[in-house]
Write a protein that binds this DNA or RNA. Structure first.
Length: 913
RNA sequence: GGGAGAUUAGCUCAGCUGGUUCAGAGCAUCUGCCUUACAAGCAGAGGGUCACUGGUUCGAACCCAGUAUCUCCCA
């Protein structure tokens, strides 16, 4: 039966994925085996697969498949995240297209649209993961907003509230004017932006007579124009700001009390230009004398630092912005204008009245919303917060003590720095898509925290003495009445407030804290995620794990790199530099893409992705395919003896040696190195050497022993490859030549090979054989002799190496017609050496004597230089005294070696003359 | 502004405790081959002052200090 010359993945991938599903190989149920568990970092429910997911999930699948083959009960839990801001933004945009404004919808109506959207697009990404070959236990698919998981979120909120770890307060938050919601610090991305620095003049109120002449000289420039009406002034001060539109919200001007230039301003008042509101000059060492003019406008409502300054100096907070970033009535002027338009207009107005001194270009860091990319507005608002410092401490310990390992370790520092400087977590979001905060408001009373309205009503009764004293009838009346007026908090919780429970909630660890699943699978083993969410998510899962389970949620955290394009840019939709993973799979096959991803991705380093890696992966699959075609085509002759014992023994050792390496790389989570180890084992050792050694001559049969050994090696190789290349390995596994397979006898659950013993002798011998073969091929190449032309080879064995045993192998691979042993140099032959042994290939055409002399001389020169450096070391007393004995011995051996080689080469040179 | 890390072949990266694993791998390049498993291939070859400057040491890609450049995190 002939097989196609190239491997075509499409046909096999669907077939085997379906088969695996049918036979429930991905299914995991607790049993007596050791569990191996990974919970997927849940992708956004409405998202589509991008290269980051690709990398991430390939790694998880490699780990899970290997564990499964090692006989562990491997459980990979998939699922999706409701991603409140991102999803809500998409739904709002979709509605807008249909001409529907979110503001006109009720919460219920909006949510029904949102669920409709989720049902339509949700889960696409999980289907895409199947294409990649992800062996998730799909029976366990969870969603962070499904009923059970939401209940867990609400319960933990209540739990933490009761513990005093959740509070409500007015704080500066990062406001996203586009999403119209607060976002956490971690969701703000800072970017350097070209801005303008506006120098604005504030007139100083003349309340203490004329200024002294010396003060004028010192720094105050007298106002040159007097267009501001109303009040008498005595000059002005200048403030530098990037945000002129916020001057209407100014509460003070601050100077550094040590600033020599501004001593005269102490206790003065100034007027805000355009609106002429009077504000005081205050003093604080916070002000940087070097920056701008040294006068700082203090705008507590619109800047975090100013807010702190305002609190310290008891300044009023004047918030002039609406939640969509437009100016409100408090701004007095430009009401209703967008903040950025207002900025330009204010600048122009200031210029018109002569209050704009100058404008400079200026670079500064501005925060942008991760989800909507809108410029973040620091804004004072009433939000819910979760206290972090208490929870951070144990979470830090897990990592510092090594109970949780971060891979690579360099992230420990980053982690520690963050955990030691942790700030409270703003957990409320002004959105509807998410878990609604279980806080209930009744009239002007403090909010009640309760799971349901009914419970909230009971709490209202219980916490008030008068209500408690009411008769049952009275209570019933109260309940009835209050239920009309009681209102639940409109906000929902931050998405991360549900994802931090993920490793527990997917096993129903909250709903049913002692169930078989959570007891068996938790703590999970490895978490594979991006370093970007080390704090968002990983740190908080550790906190939650400790808080709610008293245990770390996982043992190892593998932090992948960011997928960039080959010139180092982050892959993004807007740049259009991100290939569609599904198209890549179609082009190169899932196995090819998986290999391609991992070839270029050392742990923790960003990877410069290029399609050519996938090509390499595809080529590798094809190589395996063709190796199979070769072996598959062999006819067996039962009567033949085994001529390949040496080759078989060698590969047996080589396999074990390579496997030990591969295992050590796996242990260190160096997956790309493990893969490269397998790649070389397959391509170089198995295909290029082993198969070439044992393959019978064209159309000749093979002996049964060689056939069996070769197939056995092949099977073991398929097993090693399977975690990386699940499809092609499964396909080949079921080929007839391997014998009959039961329906459950699949590569996916085949027993992972263990390293055997390594015969160092055999490895060493083969090194010499390989060297001789390469040298002969090299001679052919440089002399332009066809590989088809058989050559004679004369051996002058100066060492104790017994070449006789190797001759058949050398003869076959180097195409040698006849061997001879000689005591003398063979004149007029091509020469090479391995170690101190000399080899001669007598050639029909005479060799170029001059070229040969040059070559020999060069080699002698090199060796002499080498010898000099060795001898320099050996004659250095301090070296001989201080260096380790083995190092010194080594140098002695090098010396002897070099000497004898030089001698032989010099003899050759003489023979030429 | 503070912190972390990086700089090794054209590219992507290994290089552990300083010494034959010491200058390596894969890809790319070049040369020759359509050799009956594979041209998505085979055989062979050429590529590097280990960012720079000093220091420690018998000995430095590796340890130390400084400089330059880059990346990331935090303000």
């Amino acid at each position: 039966m002939s097989i196609a010359k190239t491997y075509s993945p499409k046909e096999t991938e669907d077939k085997w994925y379906k088969y695996w599903l049918e036979k429930e190989f991905f299914r995991s149920i607790p049993d007596e085996r050791e569990p191996y568990t990974i919970v997927i970092p849940p992708p956004n429910v409405t998202g589509v697969l991008h290269m980051g997911h690709m990398l991430n999930n390939t790694i998880q699948d490699v780990l899970i498949r290997r564990a499964r083959m090692q006989g562990k009960n491997a459980c990979w839990v998939p699922g999706t995240d409701h991603a409140s801001i991102a999803t809500e933004a998409k739904v709002v945009a979709m509605l807008k297209e249909q001409g529907i404004d979110k503001k006109e919808l009720s919460r219920e109506a909006f949510l029904s649209y949102a669920y409709e959207w989720k049902d339509k697009y949700g889960g696409i990404i999980l289907k895409q993961l199947e294409k990649l070959g992800a062996s998730c236990d799909w029976h366990r698919t969870r969603f962070t907003m499904e009923a059970d998981l939401s209940e867990a979120v609400i319960d933990t909120f209540i739990h933490l509230y009761k513990k005093g770890l959740i509070y409500r307060g007015v704080r500066m938050v990062n406001w996203d004017p586009q999403g119209k919601t607060a976002v956490s610090d971690e969701e703000v991305i800072r970017r350097e932006v070209n801005q303008k620095l506006y120098y604005i003049r504030y007139e100083i109120k003349a309340d203490s007579g004329e200024l002294k002449a010396e003060e004028k000289v010192k720094g105050i420039q007298l106002a040159q124009d007097r267009q501001s009406p109303s009040v008498a002034t005595s000059g002005y001060l200048t403030v530098a700001t990037t945000r002129p539109e916020t001057i209407m919200a100014d509460a003070a001007i601050c100077i550094n009390p040590n600033d020599e230039r501004y001593q005269h301003l102490k206790g003065k008042k100034v007027f805000i230009p355009l609106i002429n509101r009077e504000i005081p000059v205050i003093e604080d060492e916070y002000v940087d004398v070097e920056f701008g003019t040294g006068c700082l406008k203090v705008t507590p409502a619109h800047d975090l630092n100013d807010y702190a300054l305002g609190v310290k100096h008891n300044l009023p907070v004047i918030d002039i912005l609406n939640n969509d970033g437009t100016l409100n009535e408090l701004a007095v002027i430009l009401v209703g204008e967008d903040r950025f338009i207002a900025r330009k207009k204010v600048a122009k107005m200031l210029e018109e009245v002569g209050h704009l001194e100058k404008v400079e270009d200026y670079k500064s860091q501005i925060g942008f919303s991760e989800r909507t990319d809108a410029a973040i507005e620091p804004r004072l608002s009433l939000q819910w917060f979760c206290k972090m410092d208490e929870m951070a401490k144990p979470a830090l310990e897990y990592v510092l003590t090594g109970e949780i390992k971060l891979i690579p370790e360099k992230f420990i520092n980053t982690y520690r720095h963050w955990m030691e400087n942790v700030k409270d977590w703003c957990i409320s979001r002004q959105l509807w898509w998410g878990q609604q905060i279980p806080a209930w408001y009744f009239q002007h009373e403090a909010p009640v925290i309760a799971k349901t309205k009914a419970e909230a009503l009971e709490e209202l009764i219980n916490r008030d003495e008068n209500r408690r004293k009411m008769s049952e009838n009275g209570k019933a009346g109260f309940r009835k009445q209050a239920s009309e007026f009681i209102r639940q908090d409109e906000d929902v919780l931050d998405t991360w407030f549900s994802s931090w429970l993920w490793p527990m909630s997917v096993f129903d660890g909250f709903k049913d804290p002692n169930n078989a699943d959570i007891n068996y699978y938790y703590p999970t083993n490895d978490l594979v995620t991006a370093p970007e969410i080390l704090f968002f998510w990983v740190a908080r899962m550790i906190m939650a794990g400790h808080e709610f389970k008293g245990q770390a949620p996982f043992k190892n955290v593998y932090l992948t790199g960011i997928v960039r394009d080959k010139i180092g840019r982050k892959m993004s939709k807007s740049l259009g530099n991100s290939p569609d993973p599904i198209q890549l799979i179609e082009k190169y096959g899932a196995d090819g893409v998986r290999v391609g991803m991992l070839l270029c991705s050392p742990a923790g380093n960003d990877l410069m992705f290029d399609e050519s890696y996938c090509e390499q992966g595809r080529n590798f699959a094809n190589k395996i395919w063709n190796a199979f075609r070769l072996v598959n085509g062999w006819e067996i002759d039962q009567s033949l003896p085994n001529p390949n014992e040496m080759a078989i023994n060698w590969f047996e050792s080589e396999f074990s040696r390579a496997l030990a390496d591969i295992e050590s790389n796996y242990k260190q989570y160096r997956l790309s190195e493990a893969l490269m180890g397998i790649y070389k084992l397959v391509w170089d050792d198995y295909c290029s050497w082993y198969l070439e050694m044992v393959k019978p001559a064209y159309q000749q049969p093979v002996d049964p022993a060689t056939h069996a050994a070769t197939l056995n090696f092949f099977e073991r190789i398929l097993k090693l490859l399977h975690p990386f290349m699940p499809f092609i390995t499964e396909e080949l596994w079921h080929e007839e030549v391997f014998g009959p397979r039961g329906e459950m006898d699949c590569c996916i659950v085949a027993e992972y090979p263990a390293p055997g013993t390594v015969d160092q002798q055999s490895l060493k011998a083969m090194e010499i054989v390989k060297q001789v073969i390469s040298e002969v091929r090299n001679v052919r190449n440089s002399k332009q002799i066809s590989p088809k032309e058989a050559l004679p080879l004369q051996i002058k064995a100066n060492s104790s190496t017994d070449f006789k045993a190797y001759l058949p192998m050398i003869g076959k691979l180097a195409n040698i017609s006849e061997f001879g042993f000689t005591e003398e140099k063979v004149p007029g032959a091509a020469v090479f050496m391995t170690g101190t042994d000399e080899f001669f290939i007598p050639l029909a055409d005479n060799i170029d004597v001059d070229a040969e002399r040059d070559r020999l001389q060069k080699e002698i020169e090199y060796l002499k230089g080498f010898l000099r450096s060795v001898e320099a070391k050996l004659s250095n007393e301090r070296f001989v005294q201080n260096a380790k004995a083995e190092v010194v011995d080594n140098e002695r051996r090098k010396q002897e070696d070099a000497c004898s080689k030089i001698r032989i080469l010099e003899e050759s040179l003489e023979a030429l003359a």
